[in-house]
Amino acid sequence: MQISPPKHLAPFIRHYIFLENSGENMRNLRLFTDGSSGLILSGDMKLYSGISEDRMPLSFFYGTLNGYKDFSSKCRFSLIAVVFQPYFLNILLKTSAKDVRNQIVSVEDVMKNKMEVFQEKLFNKENPLHIINDLNLFFTHFLSERKSADHHLITATQQYLLQSKGSVSSKDLQHFTGYSERHLERKFEYHMGISPKKYGNIIRLHYFLSLMNHEIDDKNMTTLSYEAGYSDQSHLIREFKNNIGLTPKQYLNTENKMAVNFIEL
């Protein structure tokens, strides 16, 4: 179940996702980059990192990803994923987004008991829509505080990249922002965790995903890759593997897509 935030929160929160696992079997999950950061809230989840098999915090923030992260889940769980606009984690934690890039940050470590009430509601199986309404109030109150003077620059540049479907040159960005490539890169990495170039590559990849997922004609992969702005199919496949860990065909054959960038392997 995917729920949009109210209009005044849309510049900061992309959407909420409520997920439930009612079975007891082990599930292998993959979260791959879409340029966003986010928050995972749970009251009873047993989630483990895919490589070290360390137990994950009950609730945690995740920084902008360069590629993908694998997890495994055991037993039943319910969770709410709050998918942020890339720069919102920087505002929320008041720290450089670059410092938390690819990182998992325990909610308890940085926000103490501020999220406990939402974890308890999830544990008690309260209506997720009611919990999301309460989260909207929480984030609205938080955003009443003053934001960085760079906020307008970052959001305007992000929208420019989105509208261009990621196909923007460094010279275009310099002309649009009035900043040098290196200066803008520093600001982007501080607020969003990644460079404008990397963010543009992610946008282009997800544009290709949208073409591939909604294509009803007989267009082949090469044609779609050109439409998305890739110079050749090998370039696309390389980007796909680096960011998703799969080939386009493997992604298409993945049966359980819980979100566009959250899949069961």
Rank of each mutant, 00 (worst) to 15 (best):
V117I: 15
V107W: 03
L93P: 02
E120K: 15
D99T: 09
Y87Q: 12
M111K: 11
K112S: 12
V110P: 01
K98Q: 09
A97H: 07
Q119R: 13
E108R: 15
I104G: 09
Y87S: 07
V107R: 03
K94T: 00
Q119I: 07
N90H: 13
I104R: 02
N90A: 05
V107N: 01
Q103N: 07
E116F: 14
L122H: 08
L122Q: 10
L89A: 10
V107A: 13
I104V: 14
L92W: 10
K94F: 01
K98E: 10
T95D: 01
L93D: 02
V107H: 02
V117N: 10
L89Q: 09
K121Y: 10
V110Y: 12
Q103R: 14
V110R: 12
L122M: 08
P86I: 03
I104Y: 08
N113P: 05
K121W: 12
L92G: 01
M115S: 07
T95L: 00
E120S: 14
V105T: 13
K94A: 06
T95C: 09
N102A: 04
Q119W: 01
K114G: 04
M115I: 12
E120A: 13
S96E: 00
P86R: 04
M115L: 15
L93C: 03
S106A: 15
F118A: 08
F88Y: 12
A97G: 10
K121I: 07
K121L: 14
K94I: 00
V117G: 10
Y87C: 05
A97T: 01
N102E: 10
V110C: 12
P86G: 08
K112T: 07
N113W: 11
Q103A: 13
Y87D: 06
L93R: 01
S106C: 05
S96L: 00
V105N: 02
